[in-house]
Design a protein around this nucleic acid. Structure first.
Lengths: 238, 238
DNA sequence: TAGATTGTTAATCGATTAACAATC
DNA sequence: TAGATTGTTAATCGATTAACAATC
């Protein structure tokens, strides 16, 4: 038990919307610190593949992804013996291994919930197709949006979402409504068989509620980390 | 002009005597691991303030942000003695200190580069106003977009961006073009006095190039972390 | 005071790094 | 073989945790 049980707090801090706990996953073979670096390795290896580069040394790759060569080799040990002493790593093999761990290459289906500017931006990007995710449906609360076409899908009312996800075995729900209504939409997903939630709304969603992986894109947090860095730099000068 | 405040009241840190700028030690001392948790503390404390909650214990706050109470208290030591034994922490004081470290509450100006769906989504969000950032101009390459109005600004050609930033002392450039052209736009910023770059394009930008803080939003990476978690969960079942 | 809760210490845990023997 | 580069070890560094004395 990580935390001790105490008396009831005088207010229920967990009832506050938009501040969801993040569940810390443990027990996986590959440490989270390594997993977090994999997307960068992935991108870099993809570039090398595009350039028909066959092999790469830990020294070269580590420079490209801005880690130490030591660290890169340490990370690679989780992928079995993909390197060859005196030679380096085979780009294709490494790319394939990392892709597999990241779950890229599998086929996923997704719905976009919220057909505003953000939803449209995501739908039109190549993010999904590049990673094996197919947009199968788009939903919005607004009657105005319904009937318009986004990402080759006709926008439907959110009331149809639950049924759609269940009937079509949808894997991922992409929540991109601009407001606090995200929590209601999130709860709608329960029992539909959706296996993951990608959340762009300003409310952080708690994975524990549905028991499926949730990745929250906390844009505001990132803006604050930028202003923090800017402050630091400003103070350095003085 | 700026929209009015809606849900969130804003607190003018500088209007509170004896708090701002006093009890925070130099930002350089605070480890990055702690800094990365501050935005979550910030959001939670803001919610508590909105509910007129005056004090909070490390136990309560730690539950809300999903860290251990120990860790929360350890983190707080970087903010001077804001807690009181047997009592807890004053929400307002803590909020103000964290705001200050994050550089929230200072006033910043920004331009949005790219007036597509993503640029419009950002411009229309409340992200900026909530953190003291004013959108002063919007730019796009496309002649079609030029002349339209986004976030109360008329969209101008990117050729005008350099001059605009220089003349108006713009602090932040928000890059939200959907393509690889981000690198060219990024290089345009050099010498304009822009102090930070917030990048939503698919190209990761290197802070070393301009020597200013850059925060890259790597949306694709985040999608892969989601599919990774989904894979893990899938494998657990077997 | 008595109860509550911080601030801090020391122990633990995990991640990174440097170095080099193994070996292609 | 000779040169190159991995895989791994041991050392270091930093972050987290548990426990409790300090003290409000």
């Amino acid at each position: 038990m990580r935390r001790k049980d105490r008396e009831e707090p005088e207010f229920d801090i967990n009832a506050i919307p938009g501040i969801a706990g993040r569940n810390v996953r443990s027990g996986a073979e590959i440490p989270q610190s390594v997993i977090n670096r994999l997307p960068r390795y992935f991108r870099c290896l993809r570039e090398l593949l595009n350039r028909d580069i066959v092999k790469v040394s830990s020294e070269q790759l580590s420079q490209a992804v801005d880690v130490t060569a030591c660290q890169l080799r340490a990370d690679m040990k989780y992928f079995g013996g993909l390197g060859q002493r005196g030679y380096g790593y085979n780009v294709m093999k490494l790319y394939n291994s990392i892709s597999e761990v990241l779950g890229v290459g599998k086929k996923y289906t997704a719905v976009i919930v919220g057909a505003g500017n953000l939803g449209k931006a995501l739908a039109q990007s190549r993010l999904f197709e590049q990673r094996g995710v197919w947009i199968k449906g788009v939903f919005d609360i607004s009657k105005k949006k319904q009937g318009t076409t986004v990402a080759d899908s006709e926008v439907s009312d959110v009331s149809a979402m639950r049924g759609f996800c269940r009937d079509n075995g949808i894997d991922i729900a992409v929540i991109c409504c601009p407001s606090r209504s995200a929590e209601e939409l999130y709860s709608l997903i329960e029992g539909t068989g959706v296996k993951g939630v990608w959340n762009f709304s300003p409310s952080e969603l708690d994975p524990a509620v549905l028991g499926v992986p949730v990745v929250n894109i906390c844009t505001g947090d990132s803006l604050m980390l930028l202003t923090h860095e800017m402050s630091l730099k400003e103070n350095e000068k003085e």
